[in-house]
Design a protein around this nucleic acid. Structure first.
Length: 322
DNA sequence: CGACTTTGACCGGCGC
DNA sequence: GCGCCGGTCAAAGTCG
């Protein structure tokens, strides 16, 4: 309706190379990205969207064959050791990444993890709701769903990141509403999603939470699940692009966007832990460090005394409006 | 009272 | 064709 700015939303923070510094290697598709010359407001997702139209370069997901539970599907040896935190450390270079991508990258584009698209469905539903007055019967509403054509699935850009955190739902400046949680029962390893991040493989846990951005007309969703190998590892997957600005950024101005909360300190410590681990081990030899661990929205997190972060990553904040 | 979470049911795709 | 499973819906419950 009313021609709002239809241009894709961009996160209110500049893109820092430091975000990439936590990656052991920049994916090929991203190597051309220069934070110095990039547009001032370019988000991780936005960039990925532009450069790859999806985020398969960063994260790839596909279903694990039911018959092969947590079997390390990774070719070679790199990936599986990562999660177990054992092995000869992390290989800074990631041959598997490209190797495996050649076989599954398809995931990125049309069939990422065999997920289904409901965006069209929602639109259809809303239209029908308006047409029918308002849905009274729950079943009616559901049965009114028009079947989606095959191959019609289309998703927004997606990217996932891995964090070591005890908190499932990391604050990112947006407001989310949980609309579902799925726990697959009676099966130790159901159709588990396998994430290939860098050269590491993450198997999602069988319990996932589904969130949707609360803003109207914004279809961004995110899924939060824990790694089955390491319960302290949270895999967060974003899907779509926000069509609005972060409520946090609107009210904040400046670099500190979220008001401090009891959980902020916890988050901060977690972030610091990650940043320091990653950056301090120049060669990324710390097997406990899952790179790609910084959420793309990280700079929106509130850090009361970001000096700490600056100490560790000097350019972490100076890019944002200061 | 509004916003949000919980939770069981439902739908449709996919594998067998 | 059937059953499993991921994703979603929506009523009920909870919280501030």
């Amino acid at each position: 309706m009313s021609g709002e700015s239809s241009e894709p939303y961009r996160h209110d923070f500049p893109f820092h190379d430091d975000l990439f510094s936590v990656f052991s290697q920049k994916p090929d598709g991203l190597q051309g990205f220069d934070p110095q010359t990039a547009p001032p407001f370019m988000s991780f997702g936005d960039y990925l969207h532009r450069s790859t139209t999806d985020c398969s370069l960063v994260v790839q997901g596909f279903d694990a064959p039911r018959s092969q539970p947590c079997d390390p599907v990774v070719d070679g040896d790199g990936g599986k050791n990562a999660a177990s935190g054992e092995g000869d450390g992390m290989t800074p270079v990631t041959p598997n990444f490209s190797a495996s991508s050649s076989s599954t990258e398809a995931a990125g584009d049309e069939d990422w993890g065999h997920c289904k698209v409901d965006q069209p469905k929602q639109e259809v539903q809303e239209e029908e709701k308006h047409a029918q007055g308002d849905g009274e019967g729950r079943d009616k509403t559901k049965k009114a769903n028009k079947p989606r054509k095959k191959g019609e699935r289309q998703r927004g850009p997606r990217f996932a990141f891995v964090t070591k955190s005890e908190v499932d739902h990391l604050e990112d400046g947006y407001r989310w509403r949980k609309y579902g949680q799925k726990a697959v029962k009676n099966s130790p390893y159901p159709r588990r999603v396998i994430y290939l991040i860098e050269s590491h493989t993450f198997f999602s846990h069988s319990l996932g939470s589904y969130y949707r951005c609360t803003a109207q007309k914004c279809n961004v969703k995110k899924r939060v699940e824990r790694s089955c190998q390491d319960p302290t590892t949270v895999i967060t997957t974003y899907e779509g692009q926000h069509t609005h600005h972060s409520p946090a950024s609107l009210r904040g101005g400046g670099g500190h966007m979220l008001s401090p909360s009891p959980t902020t300190n916890l988050r901060r410590s977690l972030l610091l832990q990650q940043v320091s681990r990653s950056s301090s081990s120049a060669g990324y030899t710390n097997p406990n460090t899952y790179h790609a661990g910084l959420p793309p929205l990280l700079p929106q997190l509130h850090v009361p005394d970001h000096g700490l972060l600056q100490d560790i990553v000097p350019s972490f904040t100076h890019g944002s409006q200061r």
